Amino acid sequence: MTPTNTTAAPSGATPATDTPVVELRGAGKAYGNVRALHGVDLTVHPGKVTCVLGDNGAGKSTLIKIISGLHQHTEGEFLVDGTPVRFTTPREALDAGIATVYQDLATVPLMPVWRNFFLGSEMTKGPWPIRRLDIEKMKQTADAELRNMGIVLDDLEQPIGTLSGGQRQCVAIARAVYFGARVLILDEPTAALGVKQSGVVLKYIAAARDRGLGVIFITHNPHHAYMVGDHFSVLRLGTMELSAARDQVTLEELTNHMAGGTELAALKHELAQVRGVDVDELPEEKDLTAPGASTKDGTA
């Protein structure tokens, strides 16, 4: 195979529109007799942050795998730009502009920052078959793209493993933006970070949104989601428990859904019988659905 020079250009900002870049309609995934995801509706618009929340086992990972092309849905529809698709590999999803930043970030800790930025898509120069890495151009491009996202590093030669967790997340986000991502899936980017570093990552999520990307922010932290989210979807046991725009749900209501408030409300009378348990502050079941929000049974 003849090597070619990588000439990917940074993507420009795209104004938000009413046409979803990615849309799931009644999507689901079954592994044999085990149904991991069922009846999920999700839309991702340019310039918007869609937050997907859920506890362990809620179906968040399965949702990521469907959208990123790792697994295929077994029910419902998956549309990109209004056209039904069925990705067979993650490369097909990347070609459609869907990039995923996983928790491990797919970086090599001992390699310099600039090498990780172009890992797998290195720029080359010179005639074939003696082409060589265009190191200077890669360094200049990585520095310029990181600065465009507001990330200033003193030394791009330092191993990326020496950066903080928040800085590594930001480099991965900038890399995805540079290589043409239109939809950015972030898998629990703040899960292992402290308060300060989480704030740094949230700032760059907002920066990606402002550049016109549709962002899918996977998290189990409703406080982080509410800081940057435009729409909130809560998964529970593979189904959509709540789907609401920002103006339809409060942080308290989102937290109640995320923390299993419905189950707590149903068990309130039993907890009241346990000595030493104060149930006065537990939510009432009728208070848990935000006005105008869609619930798992389709009612508002």
Rank of each mutant, 00 (worst) to 15 (best):
residue 177 V to E: 03
residue 294 S to G: 07
residue 16 A to R: 12
residue 203 K to T: 13
residue 159 P to I: 04
residue 60 K to M: 11
residue 11 S to W: 09
residue 224 H to P: 01
residue 61 S to K: 02
residue 170 C to I: 07
residue 151 I to T: 02
residue 76 G to T: 08
residue 100 T to K: 05
residue 287 D to M: 05
residue 35 R to V: 15
residue 45 H to F: 14
residue 281 E to C: 09
residue 141 T to L: 12
residue 289 T to M: 12
residue 70 L to Q: 10
residue 181 A to I: 07
residue 102 Y to F: 14
residue 197 Q to V: 13
residue 260 G to D: 02
residue 184 L to C: 09
residue 83 T to N: 13
residue 8 A to S: 11
residue 54 G to M: 04
residue 56 N to Y: 13
residue 188 E to I: 12
residue 215 V to Y: 00
residue 107 T to W: 00
residue 61 S to D: 03
residue 104 D to P: 03
residue 129 P to G: 09
residue 129 P to S: 10
residue 45 H to A: 10
residue 224 H to S: 09
residue 254 L to G: 03
residue 114 W to Y: 15
residue 33 N to G: 13
residue 290 A to F: 03
residue 19 T to R: 06
residue 264 L to S: 08
residue 196 K to W: 14
residue 18 D to F: 03
residue 88 T to R: 15
residue 293 A to N: 04
residue 219 T to C: 03
residue 270 E to M: 13
residue 168 R to K: 15
residue 248 Q to Y: 09
residue 211 R to H: 09
residue 133 L to H: 08
residue 293 A to I: 06
residue 75 E to I: 10
residue 4 T to H: 10
residue 121 S to A: 15
residue 4 T to L: 10
residue 120 G to P: 03
residue 34 V to Q: 10
residue 50 T to G: 00
residue 189 P to Y: 06
residue 33 N to K: 14
residue 196 K to D: 15
residue 279 V to H: 02
residue 186 L to P: 03
residue 241 E to C: 07
residue 27 A to H: 02
residue 294 S to W: 11
residue 156 L to H: 07
residue 219 T to M: 04
residue 118 F to Q: 01
residue 240 M to A: 09
residue 157 E to K: 11
residue 41 D to W: 03
residue 187 D to F: 06
residue 19 T to I: 05
residue 141 T to C: 08
residue 70 L to C: 05
residue 145 E to M: 12
residue 49 V to I: 14
residue 71 H to D: 13
residue 155 D to A: 13
residue 222 P to W: 01
residue 263 E to A: 11
residue 268 K to W: 09
residue 93 A to T: 07
residue 123 M to R: 15
residue 150 G to H: 06
residue 45 H to D: 05
residue 183 V to N: 01
residue 293 A to C: 08
residue 75 E to L: 11
residue 9 A to K: 15
residue 9 A to G: 11
residue 263 E to Q: 11
residue 284 E to L: 05
residue 272 A to K: 14
residue 197 Q to G: 08
residue 108 V to I: 12
residue 170 C to N: 04
residue 174 A to I: 04
residue 282 L to S: 06
residue 23 E to M: 05
residue 221 N to K: 10
residue 137 K to F: 04
residue 122 E to N: 04
residue 137 K to L: 09
residue 23 E to V: 06
residue 41 D to R: 06
residue 262 T to G: 02
residue 262 T to H: 11
residue 177 V to W: 10
residue 169 Q to W: 03
residue 237 L to Q: 15
residue 184 L to I: 13
residue 6 T to S: 08
residue 277 V to K: 06
residue 128 W to H: 11
residue 126 G to C: 03
residue 150 G to A: 04
residue 84 P to T: 13
residue 219 T to P: 01
residue 98 I to W: 02
residue 45 H to R: 12
residue 218 I to T: 06
residue 206 A to Q: 12
residue 91 R to A: 14
residue 152 V to H: 14
residue 242 L to Y: 05
residue 84 P to D: 13
residue 188 E to H: 14
residue 157 E to N: 15
residue 296 K to D: 14
residue 207 A to T: 14
residue 176 A to V: 01
residue 246 R to Y: 04
residue 61 S to R: 03
residue 75 E to V: 08
residue 5 N to H: 11
residue 148 N to E: 14
residue 284 E to F: 06
residue 110 L to C: 07
residue 267 L to E: 12
residue 51 C to W: 00
residue 275 R to L: 11
residue 217 F to T: 00
residue 253 E to A: 15
